[in-house]
């Protein structure tokens, strides 16, 4: 019996995840052949480590194909349709912090809140012959926030695969939903976050998929969650 732990395969997120495991006394032993994507934890034959991209980790957790994973909460909520039912945040890890926010051109001096944006969206078609356009890669989070939480029905989502913050100036969208850490990229692009426009305060989390598993594996997961959760304060 063993559990599978998926870790981010590259970048800052990978480094921070490995460091965090280290603080919890868990050493990731990477394969000697760097082209291989499987690793182990030193002294733990009950855990198998795989390296995947952060969004793949979210998807595989949703499908129950891996037991545990380190990924951003934003990706978890965006990638999986019913993330609460399929997965469980076992421990927030305190790094990879970023907010998913609604930002509008700062020259929209009359728009401070989602209620203002609702007004603007409602009139948009009559005034401009098309619906208000929102550029984002967060379809699911945007829809839930606009429609379910704020009752805004009429807008269109324009898929953005990068440089979302440039969409209003490029004319491909009117407003954006994007991730921000310090807000400096938004400011540089003359955008402002609405006062009630924070959709999600995200950070990297240890996430477990919800499924039937042997007691020993469940115990291993609980142990890892406790260790990684405690290492956060260390």
């Amino acid at each position: 019996m063993s559990v599978t732990l998926a870790l981010p395969s590259k970048g800052r997120l990978k480094e921070q995840a490995v460091e965090h495991l280290g603080r919890a006394g868990l050493t990731v032993v990477e394969p000697e052949d760097v082209r291989r994507y499987r690793a182990t934890l030193a002294g733990r034959d009950d855990v198998e480590v795989v390296f995947l991209s952060a969004s793949e980790i979210a998807r595989e957790l949703g499908a129950g194909a891996v037991d545990l994973g380190v990924t951003g909460e934003d990706l978890l909520r965006e990638t999986i349709a019913d993330s609460e039912a399929r997965t469980e945040v076992a421990a927030p890890l305190g790094f990879g912090r970023a907010d998913v926010v609604v930002a509008v051109p700062d020259v929209w001096l009359d728009v401070d809140t989602m209620a203002d944006l609702d007004d603007v969206a409602a009139d948009f078609r009559a005034r401009h012959g098309r619906r208000l356009r929102i550029a984002t890669k967060y379809w699911r989070l945007t829809q839930r926030f606009f429609t379910a939480q704020h009752g805004i029905q009429v807008y269109r989502i324009v898929e953005s695969l990068g440089a979302t913050e440039g969409a209003p100036a490029a004319g491909s969208a009117d407003v954006i939903v994007d991730i921000t850490t310090t807000g400096s990229t938004l400011r540089a692009n003359h955008l402002k976050v609405l006062s009630d426009g924070v959709i999600l305060r995200s950070q990297a989390c240890l996430v477990a998929s919800r499924k039937q598993r042997p007691e020993r594996d469940a115990a291993t997961i609980a142990e890892l969650a406790a260790a990684l959760g405690a290492a956060r304060g260390a």
């Binding site: 051109p105 001096l109 603007v120 005034r127 208000l132 209003p168 100036a169 009117d174 003359h190």
Partner: peptide, 22 residues
């Protein structure tokens, strides 16, 4: 301010729309 931000006043909300609503 729109010109500084590089936002076209013709593509979406116009300066007058914003001014009136404000």
């Amino acid at each position: 301010r729109m010109a500084e931000a590089g936002i076209s006043p013709l593509a979406g909300r116009s300066p007058l729309d914003i001014a009136r609503r404000l």
